[in-house]
Simulated scan of single mutants.
Amino acid sequence: MDERSPARCLRTVTGALPPARVRGPVLAHEHLALDLSRGGDTAAVLDGRHRAAVTGELAALREEFGLALVVELTCRGMGRDVRALARIARESGVAVVAGTGWYYERFHPAEAAAASAEELAGELVREIGADGDGSGAETSGTGGGIDGTGVRPGVIGEAGSGGDAPSAAEVRTLTAAALAARATGLSVATHAQLGRGGPAQLELLTAAGLPPYRVSIGHQDLLDDPGVHRELASAGAYVAFDTVGKENYRSDGARLRALLALLEAGHAKRALLSCDISRYGYLTAEGGTGYGHLFRSFLPRLRAAGADEDTIDLLTRRNPLRFLTGGAGDATAESAAGSPADPEEP
């Protein structure tokens, strides 16, 4: 497969969006519609019963904090519903980027079991389209896209593995993600179970020819290993602190210390932030911390620890936009995100 230049417009579920129009923060890893109940967790669901609550939360965050974009990483085998995403985006006024690819092996659908990495990559390319026009709008009757809706993914993810090293099946799906990313210009966001296996994921993806700056390694705030965070960032990948507020896994205090260590090591341009709302109990309507926990709780603590507003904007807007557009720090990517170019980036 031939490398394509990354499309500079974001592909959202309601149409192409120039990055320069994204003036508010971005949630880099969320779920608005999903169903993981077949894995045995009946609470890991966000469906039609919760749609009004999800929409209401996003609309309120747009009004209060200027929330501009959500990167929705529900992919194949996770109960993806892009028609629901399009409705949520239109009704909340918050743009949504949809994902594709395969989660970790426990949730692989049958299609992932028998095909080669190249065959799986071809399936992703057909779903994404490789025209590079940034279009992602739902277009009735056009076919193609995700489930024949005409909606095109704007990111590959969350492409997963479930341990310190990917299983044979996960090697194939992650390799497929890298090959499809090369062919279409999209970036890859991963699921690293409990933060483990990030270096192995990055090694596999880059071995397939994907530049590290087009990779975000997920759930690193669940891993108590600043050395791994520095290793990933030094290699050029994004380090996702994307389970903010999930105190039952790890305290936000520990997350904050790990993030500050990464910033102090000089890697502010490689961190992404989000909450990974992945069950209805996390919604504020159900008594949870909700999508806004990042803005209402974690960022104030980060400011109190010394982060200035430029750093906050970098973490919550410019970094995710650079990741999504495949920017390597060149003038086009940086100016599109509303910041000067940074020639020292890889």
Results as ranks from 00 to 15, higher is better:
L205T: 11
L205R: 14
T206M: 15
T206P: 01
T206W: 06
T206A: 08
A207V: 15
A207D: 15
A207F: 13
A207C: 13
A207R: 15
A208F: 14
A208T: 07
A208E: 09
A208K: 14
A208P: 12
A208G: 11
A208M: 10
G209R: 01
G209S: 04
G209H: 01
G209N: 05
L210P: 07
L210H: 06
L210Q: 12
L210A: 13
P211S: 11
P211E: 08
P211R: 07
P211W: 11
P211K: 13
P212Y: 13
P212M: 13
P212N: 14
P212C: 15
Y213S: 12
Y213F: 15
Y213A: 02
R214Q: 10
R214E: 03
R214N: 10
R214V: 03
R214Y: 11
V215R: 00
V215H: 01
V215Y: 05
V215Q: 06
S216K: 03
S216R: 07
S216Y: 06
S216G: 13
S216P: 05
I217R: 00
G218F: 07
G218T: 03
H219Q: 09
H219R: 04
H219P: 08
Q220D: 02
Q220T: 04
Q220N: 01
Q220V: 03
Q220M: 11
D221Q: 02
L222C: 06
L222V: 03
L222Y: 03
L222Q: 09
L223C: 05
L223A: 02
L223K: 00
D224C: 07
D224H: 08
D224Y: 04
D224W: 07
D224A: 15
D224R: 12
D224K: 05
D225A: 09
D225H: 02
D225L: 06
D225N: 14
D225Q: 07
P226N: 06
P226S: 04
P226Q: 06
G227Q: 09
G227E: 10
G227L: 09
G227I: 11
G227S: 01
G227T: 12
G227D: 13
V228G: 05
V228L: 13
V228F: 11
H229N: 06
H229F: 04
R230Q: 14
R230H: 11
R230F: 10
R230S: 13
R230G: 15
E231C: 03
E231H: 07
E231P: 05
E231A: 00
E231D: 08
E231G: 00
E231W: 05
L232A: 11
L232C: 10
L232N: 06
L232T: 05
L232S: 03
L232M: 08
A233P: 07
A233L: 02
A233D: 10
A233F: 06
S234G: 12
S234V: 10
S234C: 14
A235C: 09
G236E: 01
G236L: 00
G236C: 12
A237T: 08
Y238L: 10
Y238H: 09
Y238K: 08
V239H: 03
V239N: 07
V239M: 12
V239R: 08
V239C: 04
A240I: 02
A240C: 06
A240Q: 08
A240M: 02
A240D: 01
A240N: 01
A240K: 00
